[in-house]
Simulated scan of single mutants.
Amino acid sequence: MIDIHCHILPDLDDGAKHMEESVRMARQAVDQGIHAVIATPHHKTTRYENDRQTVLESVRQLNNRLREEHIPLKVHPGQEIRIFEHMGHTFDETELLSLNETGVYVLIELPSHEIPRYTDHLIYNLSTQGYIPIIAHPERNQVILENSDILYEFVKNGGLSQVTASNLTGKLGKKVRHFSESLIEHNLAHVIASDAHHIEHRAFDLQDAYQSVRKRMDTAYVKQLSENAYDILNGERIHSYEPTRLKSKGLFGWFK
């Protein structure tokens, strides 16, 4: 199993201390049946700046440690990039990382409570440069929760989206779980990832998430979601179905 979005790298302010947490997370990932992850530390937020060279060096150090510990997990480089206005004009490969350095997929993050006015142009511009933007956890964005047509337009404009495993298992409540499931059912979500941060309150939940989706979707579709993660890791084009609009707008309109 592949996880394309997790925060397994040690915190850079105290690497010696947090390397142990990274090793514990690696063991947990293996217990979940995961054999490869893309490390996606936050970049360009108000708190975090994890540029390309920093990430590459941290991945190298962590993989060395995992080999020493005989933990069968391979960590690949990436970033979860908080979008900024000039990002789509020219993708700066001296600072920014595509997922696994394939030059294809870019994991982008929206603010939690808004959709910046330039987002649609950014997605389009990245697409015209040959990149495929993947929107991280759109089910957590309050604007998309109230109007899923916004995500529909992003997908029609060349973007993909990734839902978080714990949201499919209900850890953020039934409403977010139902919304996440609806995104998958309407081909508005293309891959499941853990977005794991810690071994306890934000852990790897991929097995439970896939089990939840199996209850609602056919086996072939669930298999395709899993294969999409492999394709993203390897820079191959995923198989995607034509997206459809959700029948009702607004999370609270569906689940009264």
Results as ranks from 00 to 15, higher is better:
D120L: 15
D120Y: 10
I123Q: 01
Y124H: 10
Y124C: 06
Y124T: 09
N125K: 13
T128E: 15
T128K: 14
Q129G: 09
Q129S: 11
G130I: 02
I132E: 02
I134Y: 03
I134T: 07
I135K: 13
I135D: 12
I135F: 08
A136M: 05
H137I: 10
H137D: 13
P138I: 02
P138E: 00
E139P: 06
E139I: 07
R140Y: 03
N141Y: 03
N141T: 06
Q142F: 11
V143F: 08
V143N: 04
V143T: 05
I144E: 02
I144Y: 08
I144M: 07
L145G: 04
E146H: 00
E146S: 05
N147E: 15
N147G: 06
S148V: 00
S148E: 00
D149C: 09
D149I: 05
I150N: 07
I150Q: 09
E153L: 05
F154P: 00
K156N: 12
K156E: 12
G158D: 15
G158Q: 15
G159A: 02
G159Y: 00
S161P: 08
V163N: 12
V163P: 05
S166F: 12
S166V: 09
S166H: 08
S166R: 15
N167E: 10
N167A: 11
T169G: 03
G170M: 01
K171G: 02
L172P: 02
L172D: 06
K174R: 09
K175T: 10
K175N: 14
V176F: 12
R177Y: 00
H178T: 13
H178Q: 13
F179S: 11
L183K: 07
L183P: 01
I184F: 06
I184M: 05
A189D: 14
A189F: 11
H190R: 05
V191N: 15
I192G: 03
I192D: 04
A193N: 12
S194A: 14
S194M: 13
S194T: 14
S194G: 09
D195S: 10
D195N: 14
D195F: 08
A196W: 01
H197I: 11
H198C: 12
E200R: 11
R202F: 09
R202Y: 06
A203Y: 14
A203K: 15
D205T: 03
D205P: 00
D205S: 01
A209F: 08
Y210L: 10
Y210A: 05
S212V: 09
S212W: 06
K215E: 10
R216K: 10
A220G: 06
Y221A: 03
Y221M: 04
K223D: 12
K223Y: 03
L225H: 08
S226Q: 13
S226Y: 07
E227R: 13
E227F: 08
N228C: 07
Y230A: 13
D231F: 05
D231T: 04
D231A: 12
L233G: 02
L233M: 14
L233I: 08
N234T: 04
N234Y: 08
G235C: 14
E236P: 06
H239R: 12
S240D: 01
Y241H: 15
R245F: 06
R245D: 05
R245E: 10
L246H: 14
K247V: 07
